[in-house]
Design a protein around this nucleic acid. Structure first.
Length: 794
RNA sequence: GCCCGAGUGGCGGAAUUGGUAUACGCGUUCGACUUAAAAUCGAAUGGAAUCUUCCAUAUGGGUUCAAGUCCCAUCUCGGGCACCA
């Protein structure tokens, strides 16, 4: 018998697949009558290091499902692409002078080669690359649609700025006060920047989350990120000035307890509130507050602030209350101003204590609540609140807002934590924003027939502190004529997340020269049925939903949610349980595992067996060997004719088919592999007939496609997914579990057709010696047919 | 601080709807084959008592005929958010 030689058979099948392209999605009539299934992974950033084991987990999940549905004769779309814009290629260019264009090409070629070495069932004719002008042409087109509708707009404001990468960052890209790419502390810088108005879809993004077949964890994270809260907007008149201050509060019921106002240091009205006496102190405070980094703010939550010198009138009490400024009030949320109710808000309480401001209690908590703190934030009955005395807080929230509305000094208001999406980047290696400015600095869209705006070649990729990208150095490129008028191009590029916000739709018609996506193809294939990834819970996965809703509104997409089912898998860590990293030297290279002789089938099957898909897992080299032994046993079973002998395993076979099929439907890959291992172990003991081996090869194919193909060839069989027959799922006899008071005391065997004969089963159980010992005096019996179990209560 | 998860042998984990806890794999031990080793095949493997029993699913309580699974409290770990008014 020939030995199992994975490297040899994998080369054979891979070259066959390369030639015959069996994974091409069927188009037109060919696909008729078949169920369409559109699967994708979050496409990779092709780094110079090549595939890592995390990619392999990601791609293999998609591959197992792709093959599972393909074997069921579905019409499957499983494309592949590369997310190529970004800092690493640009930083590499700055360091080495190798252009990002050329480094990207090298890396893509390597990624493609490695993905092919893993035997993935990819439709290679649909490859996309976000830095290809044929692709970003349409990213720019998407931008222009948003621009036309006012959903891409410019705003001058304080933004996160990374002093190392010399670019602004979105809120989602600042992690713990540091740049998500280089880890350096970020600063605030006042700049005019481009934004996408994602907040226009806040409610819909929130409301439709519950309908998605996504992990709860991700749904909760998105809900928290959107952070909807209901409350009121209230006008406070400024004493002796023709000015008023709007505040947002979720607790209008506490209005009578508002003893001062606090404005964010960046609040535009601060200038008008200062007096000769307070001016210099206020200006100093603003200067330090703006300079303060996020880290400093987090580390030191001690309240700081200054009095502006002005007073406002509390509309409920008519009293004068001082107006302060403090950095604990954030400009980006609500109105950037609050009414402080120190008796019923922790933060206001701290501030009042520090600056010796009045604390006025307006809520009496009910007696059964144990809370001795001076600041009570719960519910209760109003006191010191004029005509609202005695009203409970929940009713008062309605009542006071109603009163404010009648006085025209306030109204109901909903706010969100989510901000608009900052998309300008002062970097070279990104999609140019298709905008030009006229002499007055007014932005104009580059006409659609002049797209794509191609990235110009430059000599020096280095960004600087000018706040403009290296594109500004391409002097000729900067000039553009629109409608006969000479203009200057925008030099910012788009956040990479913009490029990945629509690629799932490009895949349906990747070579379309006239449209971002083809109308017919999108109707047939999209939305994506299963999307697999390990990151981007809020950023990418929220942006795709936002663009989907926008393009649905514009009539370009016939659906409002882009991803039906999301599989969010865990990371693979080093054998020591720590994150793999070059500096720690604990990186497992998947290509090494293959080339060490294990082959791609073992690697794939191992990563599916490593543990539940949603959890992190640690690499275990010995377990890789265990999976290799399993595949070896499959080989032996099929090719060693001495072991294969006539046997009757029809029940075992049908049970296995059902279990593996069910497990794949619920994405329980580790137990599917375990079931196949059990099956093989049983066949070793019982002997196998041809049908057993055919079933094995077909069920194994999603995990180990090369080996399974070799087996199917030898067995002269197609690969159509096997179907179990209900009538073969039952053995002739059934084991009944007999418990006494819930404890196992005996097992009795009956004929399967006696399963409903509770009387006989009970009688048999009570005859059992061991049962008699424990249940001499049975009170009642409970028979659970479904569980094959009889419990005797004694 | 707030919001989610999770805690099962020496290890990774299984138990899908409340119904035989520890599937499968690793490791370990023994045996077969071999001059020998590797590979392969077979057997055993939660703990304690020792022949069928007791104790075990982070800890303490509860509901139930029956709890890893449900409820309450506590501890530990992981993730997310973090002055969002």
């Amino acid at each position: 018998m020939e030995r199992y030689d994975p490297l040899k058979i994998e080369a054979k099948w891979q070259s066959k697949w390369e030639k015959e392209k069996p994974f091409k999605a069927l188009e037109g009539k060919e696909g008729d009558g078949r169920q369409k299934v559109y699967l994708a992974e979050m496409f990779p950033y092709p780094s110079g290091a090549g595939l890592h084991v995390g990619h392999v987990r990601n791609f293999t999940i998609v591959d197992v499902l792709t093959r599972f549905y393909t074997q069921q004769k579905c019409n499957v779309l499983r494309p592949f692409g590369y997310d190529t814009f970004g800092l690493p290629a640009e930083n590499y260019a700055i360091k080495t002078g190798v252009s990002p264009q050329s480094a990207t090409e090298t890396n893509i070629n390597n990624f493609r080669k490695q993905a092919k070495r893993l035997g993935y069932a990819i439709d290679w004719d649909r490859e996309i690359n976000t830095s290809d002008p044929d692709y970003y042409h349409w990213t720019q087109w998407c931008f222009l649609q948003l621009f036309k509708k006012g959903l891409a707009y410019q705003k001058e404001s304080y933004q996160w700025w990374c002093p190392v990468d010399k670019t602004v960052l979105a809120n989602e890209q600042v992690e713990g006060g540091c740049c998500w790419r280089c880890g350096h502390e970020v600063e605030k810088k006042k700049m005019k920047q481009w934004f996408f108005k994602i907040t226009a879809y806040a409610d819909e993004l929130l409301d439709e989350i519950d309908s998605l077949d996504w992990p709860e964890k991700i749904k909760t994270m998105q809900k928290n990120w959107i952070g909807r809260s209901e409350g009121a907007e209230i006008d406070f008149e400024v004493k002796d000035k023709k000015e008023n201050i709007k505040v947002f509060t979720t607790r209008p019921d506490t209005l009578f307890g508002a003893t001062f106002l606090v404005l964010a240091p960046e609040h535009p009205k601060v200038k008008k509130l200062v007096t000769e006496k307070t001016k210099s102190e206020v200006e100093d405070y603003i200067k330090t507050a703006v300079k303060k980094s996020e880290i400093e703010r987090q580390e030191n939550k001690e309240k700081t602030g200054v009095f502006t010198g002005s007073y406002a009138i509390n509309p409920a009490t008519g009293e004068e209350i001082p107006i302060w400024i403090s950095d604990y009030v954030l400009m980006g949320y609500g109105e950037g101003a609050i009414m402080a109710v120190p008796a019923h808000d922790e933060r206001d309480f701290e501030f009042a204590k520090k600056f010796d401001l009045e604390v006025r209690k307006v809520i009496e908590k009910s007696e059964n609540i144990e809370d001795d703190s001076l600041c009570y934030c719960g519910e209760g009955e109003l006191i010191n609140s004029g005509k609202f005395n005695g009203v409970n807080t929940a009713d008062a929230r309605e009542g006071i807002v109603f009163w404010l509305e009648s006085q025209k000094i306030g109204k109901k208001r909903v706010t969100y934590k989510m901000r608009d999406w900052l998309i300008s980047r002062q970097r070279y290696w990104g999609c140019p924003i298709p905008i030009a400015y006229d002499k007055n600095g007014k932005p104009h869209a580059i006409p659609e027939d002049q797209l794509p705006v191609v990235i110009p070649e430059v000599e020096d990729y280095k960004p600087d502190d000018s706040g403009r990208s290296a594109l500004a150095k391409a002097k000729d490129w900067l000039k553009v004529t629109i409608d006969g008028e000479e203009m200057t191009r925008e030099t910012d590029t788009l956040d990479g997340y913009a490029c990945s916000s629509w690629y799932l739709w490009r895949y349906v018609s990747p070579h379309d020269k006239k449209h971002a996506w083809d109308e017919k193809a999108i109707k047939y294939w999209a939305p994506t049925d299963i999307y697999v990834g390990a990151d981007h819970a809020v950023a990418h996965l929220l942006y795709v939903r936002f663009w989907c809703k926008f393009f649905a509104d514009e009539g370009f997409l016939p659906f409002r949610e882009p991803i039906k089912k999301l599989i969010y898998h865990g990371y693979i860590n080093a054998p020591d349980g720590k994150k793999m990293s070059k500096s720690k030297g604990n990186v497992i290279d998947p290509l090494d595992v293959i080339n060490d002789g294990y082959g791609a089938d073992t690697l794939r099957t191992y990563e599916m067996f490593i543990g539940p898909i949603e959890l992190d897992a640690a690499w275990n080299p010995r377990s890789v060997g265990g999976v290799y032994r399993f595949l070896n046993r499959c080989w032996t079973l099929c090719f060693d004719t001495e072991i294969s002998k006539k046997a009757n395993n029809i029940v075992l076979r049908n049970k296995t088919i059902k279990k593996v099929t069910d497990d794949l439907h619920r994405c329980s890959f580790n137990t599917a592999v375990a079931t196949l291992m059990e099956y093989v172990n049983e066949l070793y003991k019982l002997g196998a007939e041809k049908d057993d081996l055919v079933a094995l090869a077909k069920l194994l194919k999603p995990f180990a496609p090369h080996l399974a193909s070799e087996m199917l060839e030898k067995l002269d069989s197609d690969d159509e997914w096997p179907i179990w027959d209900e009538k073969y799922l039952k053995d002739e006899t059934i084991e009944i579990i007999v418990q006494v008071n819930g404890k196992l005391r005996a097992k009795i065997s009956i004929n399967t057709d006696e399963i409903d004969n509770e009387e006989k089963i009970t009688a048999l159980a009570l005859e059992n010696e061991n049962v008699k010992k424990f249940a001499g005096n049975p009170k009642k019996t409970i028979y659970v047919k479904k569980a094959h179990l009889l419990n005797i209560v004694a």
